[in-house]
Design a protein around this nucleic acid. Structure first.
Lengths: 135, 135
DNA sequence: TATAACCTTGACGTTAAGGTTAAGGATGGG
DNA sequence: CCCATCCTTAACCTTAACGTCAAGGTTATA
């Protein structure tokens, strides 16, 4: 079974990004589709799910493309480390620290988010009560 | 007891923003410190906590200053609505919808965040195991 | 009263993340 | 073979969120 590839226009539709953004992401080395002999970009399904993950990080979490790249790079080195079933303990410890730092960062964001959410939920409750008294 | 006011430099230190950013936020009408006769900005403690909230929204959640402004404006109109103990039911219903929309948006972000966090936690666990086997 | 250390408003520069337009090659159908 | 419809790179434009002077007013201190 050979792989299916998509041209840029189709990928744009599938991911909700523009063609310009897809090309820009390639410049940033966030995705690297293969090319036809004529130079056309060909995206695999893996490329597309990668792009969707990037989109989620960008849209939902407001990460910059640079920090997204760092995050993806980190995940790749982690994969490498984990694939070799025994590696340098020093490298592993460093990676653990890195990952813990990321998790901590995310936890902070989670707290900030839930604060904002709580605030809105309090107001929502008050509004609903007010509406009931009005009717 | 009269209020305490701070000049811009001190506010910059207290909030971790630059003076330029503070002036820019005033241009954006995110904060409006009072002025001395000579035109110096004077920030109150309330101004400072407002600025800290803005910072949190910007840093942790990646909101644009525009959407932060919209959010703050919404909260102000909500306060007004809630202060008048009976208002126009139509207005109230609209506000409820607005708030529900915001909460939904935040929930989406929360899910996205926890997905990313989970991914990292799985990797972290694997790394810790790998380290133990190495030692 | 002079001088340093604040503050002010411009005004132009910068970076990220694309939008837009131009000029030209590839490809598929009639 | 030709035309429409894809694709390519290159180059310049745009917006947000400031950074960075520059020129000048204010205030505290020696």
């Amino acid at each position: 079974m050979d792989l299916i590839y998509y041209q840029i226009e189709e990928v744009a539709q599938k991911t909700g990004l523009t063609k310009r953004a897809l090309r820009y992401y390639e410049d940033m080395k966030l995705v690297t589709p293969i090319r036809t002999d004529a130079g056309y970009r060909l995206y695999s399904d893996d490329d597309i799910s990668e792009i969707l993950r990037i989109r989620e990080l960008r849209d939902s979490l407001g990460f910059s493309l640079n920090s997204i790249k760092e995050s993806l790079d980190l995940q790749n080195t982690l994969k490498e480390i984990l694939s070799q079933s025994n590696g340098d303990p020093i490298v592993i410890k460093k990676s653990i620290e890195e990952v813990e730092k990321q998790i901590k960062l995310i936890s902070e964001k989670e707290i900030a988010l839930s604060n904002v959410k709580n605030k809105y939920e309090v107001v929502l409750k008050q509004l609903v009560e007010l509406l009931q008294r009005c009717e």
